[in-house]
Computed example of a mutant assay.
Amino acid sequence: MAKGFGSEDAAQDEIEGAVGDAVRRAQDALPHGVSRTRCEECDAVIPEGRRNALPGVRLCVQCQEIQDQAQGPQSAYNRRGSKDSQLR
């Protein structure tokens, strides 16, 4: 077993913390509340199946895809700032 900057438990805690942060960010990004019947961008009808599957939905599928592409990919960030993780 190789020894580095910390123990295996510390590395596992770091992984669990990063995963937990990502899950919380994803949950916070989900809409909440009552779904709209029409898209707030283009005024298209939002199908009932989409409204039921995603409570609080405000955009049709096409407008949601455009918004998602405009936001770009979410980048992971280095929580600890250790030299090893910066070398990836």
Rank of each mutant, 00 (worst) to 15 (best):
residue 44 A to V: 08
residue 1 M to L: 08
residue 81 G to I: 03
residue 10 A to E: 15
residue 75 S to W: 08
residue 65 E to D: 13
residue 65 E to T: 12
residue 16 E to A: 12
residue 57 V to D: 05
residue 60 C to E: 04
residue 52 N to H: 07
residue 75 S to Q: 15
residue 25 R to K: 12
residue 61 V to G: 06
residue 48 E to S: 00
residue 45 V to Q: 11
residue 87 L to P: 02
residue 66 I to D: 13
residue 1 M to V: 10
residue 78 N to A: 06
residue 69 Q to K: 12
residue 83 K to I: 10
residue 43 D to C: 09
residue 21 D to S: 08
residue 48 E to F: 00
residue 26 A to H: 05
residue 76 A to S: 13
residue 48 E to D: 00
residue 80 R to D: 08
residue 17 G to I: 05
residue 60 C to S: 01
residue 81 G to L: 00
residue 9 D to A: 15
residue 37 T to R: 14
residue 66 I to K: 14
residue 18 A to K: 11
residue 20 G to E: 11
residue 29 A to Q: 07
residue 11 A to R: 15
residue 67 Q to V: 09
residue 63 C to E: 02
residue 48 E to A: 00
residue 72 G to Q: 04
residue 35 S to A: 07
residue 17 G to V: 03
residue 45 V to R: 11
residue 28 D to M: 11
residue 54 L to G: 01
residue 85 S to P: 02
residue 71 Q to R: 15
residue 2 A to Q: 12
residue 70 A to M: 08
residue 48 E to I: 00
residue 54 L to H: 09
residue 57 V to M: 00
residue 28 D to P: 03
residue 21 D to L: 08
residue 52 N to R: 14
residue 25 R to W: 03
residue 44 A to W: 03
residue 63 C to S: 04
residue 57 V to R: 01
residue 52 N to Q: 13
residue 80 R to G: 07
residue 83 K to P: 08
residue 43 D to V: 10
residue 9 D to V: 12
residue 88 R to T: 07
residue 55 P to N: 02
residue 14 E to D: 11
residue 54 L to C: 09
residue 65 E to V: 13
residue 47 P to N: 03
residue 81 G to K: 04
residue 38 R to S: 12
residue 13 D to S: 11
residue 26 A to D: 01
residue 8 E to N: 13
residue 79 R to K: 07
residue 7 S to R: 05
residue 57 V to G: 03
residue 40 E to C: 04
residue 15 I to C: 06
residue 61 V to W: 09
residue 77 Y to S: 11
residue 4 G to M: 01
residue 35 S to R: 04
residue 12 Q to F: 13
residue 25 R to V: 08
residue 74 Q to N: 10
residue 5 F to R: 13
residue 20 G to A: 15
residue 66 I to Y: 09
residue 29 A to T: 03
residue 2 A to E: 12
residue 18 A to N: 09
residue 64 Q to W: 10
residue 18 A to H: 07
residue 1 M to I: 07
residue 44 A to H: 07
residue 13 D to H: 09
residue 31 P to I: 04
residue 13 D to E: 13
residue 87 L to Y: 01
residue 8 E to A: 14
residue 42 C to N: 02
residue 26 A to G: 03
residue 43 D to S: 15
residue 63 C to D: 00
residue 23 V to I: 15
residue 67 Q to S: 08
residue 70 A to V: 02
residue 48 E to L: 01
residue 66 I to E: 14
residue 10 A to F: 11
residue 54 L to D: 09
residue 25 R to T: 10
residue 72 G to T: 06
residue 51 R to P: 01
residue 20 G to C: 02
residue 25 R to G: 07
residue 42 C to K: 01
